[in-house]
Every structure is written in structure tokens, then in C-alpha cells.
């Protein structure tokens, strides 16, 4: 079976710095893949390059068999790729509802827009209650749910999440990870997730990938990684 997302030899960075140094990674349809690694290991850069926010310096990204390297985020969204960025992935001065509408910016049909919003409200009922509230005044957990909800508005086949647990209390991290699992199970959405929180990242993953200084140093079952010695040697 060919991969839904196929990254090969990807090189990317900022200015004079190369952060991702030739990474190969396949993500198959329906999988949850967690990318682990230190700060500065290149995790965020990898995701942002795949999504088209950063130019790749070398290598290719293929989605559903077609090369999408260097394509605009808007084209990726139209094709079924969505990104939940690190930190507050929302518009802080706009209402919950406006945020969701912007998440579905490409949608021109009002009915589809309403259906998708209902779907997000079904997944995160708190957002329905808070729909008129300004995004920046939501709690951290609610902001993260809104960010995920916005990404779901485009009904992605591949959902990319950059450290969704960052800055959240443990009980909220559980809640967010549960919803990621639920999205994967209910809609068959393929998930590519970056995590610094090893425990949560491994718990949710079907497969784990470890990056170190821009290189992939592990790719396999999370159980293999759970062995403490193996983890330490990789990090």
C-alpha cells in the first residue's frame, strides 16, 4: 500500500540554519504517527515545511501520490491537509464562531459550513456554549479545542498537529489526546502529531518517529521506545 503522505530527503531551515536535514517519513492512511524529539530537533520545521509554510531546500513531499512540495497552504487545505500550529492556533480577537468560519475559509456553501460547525460542536460541546465568546478569552484547553475544531472545518484527510499538549494541565492533555483518537477513529482521519510530552505522545501513537538534530533516528512501534534505555540513547 502506498503512503498517504510520503516525505523523502526533506531539507529545510531558517536563514543560514538547516534544521531538517534529510528526513524520510511515510504516513499511511488511517495511521496516528507521533514525531518525538528535543527542542530544536526539527519537529515543527518538518511539519511547517510539509504544510507549505516554509520552503523545502531539497527533497519531496507527496500526498496521495502527487508531489506537493512547495505548494501553498491554501492548496493543501483544498486537497485535505490541515495544520494545527503550536501555541494558540486561533484568532485571538475574533469570536469562536468567526474562528470556525475562518477555519473553513475555503467553504463557499453555507449549508456545508453549518454542517461542519455542527460537527465540531458535536465533538467539543463547550465550543457551542462559548460560540459568541472572543477566542483569546477562552481557557487554554478550550483554545486548543477551538484550534483543532478550526482544522477540522476543512474536513481533512490528514490532520497535522504541532504539540497540542503544550501548556495544558495533565487532565486537559488527556482530553485533547482523547479527541485526537476519536477524530482518527470516527472519521478515519490520518494523524501526524508532534509531541514533546513522551508519555502522551506514545500513548496515542500507532507508530513513533524520533528526530534528533534534524535526522530521523527511530521509526517503529511505540512499545519498542518505551524501553527506557532505548529512549535515552536516542535523545
Amino acid at each position: 500500500m502506498s503512503a498517504l503522505l510520503s516525505i523523502s530527503g526533506l531539507v529545510a531551515g531558517y536563514g543560514k540554519k538547516t534544521v531538517v536535514n534529510g528526513v524520510d517519513l511515510d504516513v499511511h492512511a488511517g495511521e496516528i504517527v507521533t514525531v518525538l524529539g528535543h527542542n530544536g530537533a526539527g519537529k515543527t520545521t518538518l511539519l511547517r515545511t510539509v504544510f507549505g509554510l516554509i520552503k523545502a531546500r531539497a527533497g519531496t513531499v507527496r500526498f496521495d501520490g502527487r508531489a506537493i512540495t512547495g505548494r501553498l497552504p491554501s492548496d493543501n487545505i483544498a486537497d485535505g491537509v490541515a495544520l494545527v500550529p503550536q501555541g494558540h492556533g486561533i484568532f485571538r480577537t475574533l469570536s469562536v464562531l468567526q474562528n470556525l468560519e475562518l477555519g473553513g475559509f475555503a467553504i463557499t456553501d453555507r449549508r456545508i459550513m453549518a454542517e461542519r460547525i455542527d460537527l465540531v460542536f458535536g465533538l467539543f460541546p463547550i465550543l457551542k456554549e462559548r460560540q459568541a465568546q472572543i477566542g483569546g478569552t477562552l481557557s487554554g484547553g478550550q483554545q486548543q479545542m477551538l484550534a483543532i475544531g478550526m482544522a477540522l472545518m476543512s474536513a481533512p484527510r490528514l490532520l497535522i498537529l504541532d504539540e497540542p499538549s503544550i501548556g495544558l494541565a495533565p487532565v486537559l492533555v488527556e482530553r485533547v489526546m482523547d479527541s485526537i483518537r476519536e477524530i482518527n477513529r470516527s472519521y478515519g482521519t490520518t494523524i501526524l502529531l508532534v509531541e514533546q510530552n513522551l508519555k502522551h505522545g506514545l500513548a496515542v501513537a500507532g507508530r513513533a518517529v524520533v528526530l534528533n538534530r534534524g535526522l530521523k533516528v527511530f521509526d517503529g512501534a511505540p512499545a519498542e521506545l518505551a524501553d527506557q534505555g532505548k529512549l535515552l540513547s536516542l535523545f
Partner: peptide, 14 residues
């Protein structure tokens, strides 16, 4: 409105 709020997010939503 989106661009005025957050340029990076505006690009992310396409």
C-alpha cells in the same frame, strides 16, 4: 480581520 489578527494563522487557514 483574520490577517489583522494573526498573519501566520491566516496563512494556516489558507
Amino acid at each position: 480581520l483574520a490577517l489583522g489578527d494573526d498573519r501566520d494563522m491566516a496563512r494556516i487557514v489558507g
